[in-house]
Simulated scan of single mutants.
Amino acid sequence: MPSPAEAPAPRPALRLVLVDDHEMVLHGLTAMLAHFSDQVVIAGTATTYDQALALVDRTRPDVVLCDVRLGRTSGIDLCQAITTAYPEVSVVLLSVYDDEHYLFQALRVGARGYILKRVDAAELVTHLQRACDGETVVDPALAGRVALSAARIHAGEFWPGAHLGLTQRESEVLELLVAGRSNRAIASTLVISEDTVKTHLRGLYRKLEVTDRAGAVSVALREGIFR
């Protein structure tokens, strides 16, 4: 056995920022992680998009643990803002949504992980450490479906509308458009802002060579993209 002098130095505690629009959740996470204070130190908490960005700028944590939904804004949008402005900061999304749809959104904007809220404290600490080590951490409940989706993409089964140049997100917006959803409903379903929805609409209008929602729906139905 190695002598104490040869034992590896203990890992420094991670500096963590918690973001959730419910104070009760923040208190619960803080209490849960208090038992692991030698591994995780909470640098601050925030309940809004703007508070979170200001806190990250001020504290420069190792990792941000953020809810997917933040009231009228989105944890997905916050993740993108953080990873763009502070690429050295790892972002892990925490969610109640057991759906790979949200996971793919998170990974597309640079998230280091997507964890379900049923995770226990010890598992959460391990996930955060792995994310800071550069790994992409996916909740085990979603891992199988992610592998299946990756296999389908590898086999050439791309998203509807890809042959017309639509991105996957534009395809998702178009599908909801065909279903008659409003911009607000689309934003809520995809966990993005209404401004982001409008940006995607402009993109798909241009690619489909139409000028409005009715035109986009007409092309989608005519081309058999969605029925």
Results as ranks from 00 to 15, higher is better:
Asp57His: 15
Thr48Met: 05
Tyr102Gly: 12
Val197Glu: 10
Val137Arg: 00
Ala216Lys: 11
Ser171Val: 00
Ser218Ala: 15
Glu209Tyr: 10
Val219Asn: 07
Leu208Met: 10
Arg108Ser: 13
Leu166Thr: 00
Val41Tyr: 01
Arg108Thr: 04
Gln80Trp: 01
Ala13Met: 09
Gly44Val: 07
Leu93Ile: 12
Gly44Leu: 03
Ala122His: 07
Ala155Asn: 05
Leu116Val: 11
Pro140Trp: 12
Glu123Asp: 11
Leu128Trp: 00
Glu209Met: 13
Tyr97His: 13
Lys207Met: 12
Leu190Lys: 06
Val40Glu: 02
Val63Lys: 02
Ala220Lys: 07
Pro140Cys: 08
Gln39Glu: 00
Ala143Asp: 13
Lys207Gly: 01
Arg11Lys: 08
Leu176Lys: 11
Ala151Asp: 11
Thr48Asn: 07
Val125Cys: 08
Tyr102Met: 05
Val178Ala: 06
Val68Asn: 05
Glu23Gln: 15
Leu204Arg: 04
Arg213Asn: 10
Arg112Gln: 13
Pro10Phe: 01
Glu135Phe: 02
Val173Arg: 03
Val68Trp: 09
Tyr86Glu: 14
Val138Asp: 03
Ala13Arg: 09
Ala31Gln: 07
Arg118Gly: 15
Asp77Ile: 05
Ala122Phe: 01
Glu23Met: 00
Arg184Pro: 02
Asn183Gly: 07
Asp120Gln: 15
His200Gln: 10
Thr126Ala: 02
Arg108Phe: 08
Leu55Met: 10
Arg145Asn: 08
Asp50Ser: 08
Val96Gly: 02
Ala13Ser: 09
Ala216Thr: 03
Leu166Ile: 05
Arg130Thr: 02
Trp159Arg: 08
Ala13Val: 10
Val40His: 01
Leu26Thr: 13
Val92Cys: 03
Thr126Leu: 07
Val197Arg: 03
Ala54His: 10
Ala46His: 06
Glu135Lys: 03
Asp20Pro: 13
Lys207Phe: 14
Cys132Val: 07
Phe104Glu: 11
Ala7Val: 12
Val92Trp: 01
Asp67Thr: 11
Arg130Cys: 06
Leu26Trp: 04
Cys132Asp: 09
His22Met: 07
Ala122Asp: 10
Glu6Cys: 12
Tyr97Thr: 02
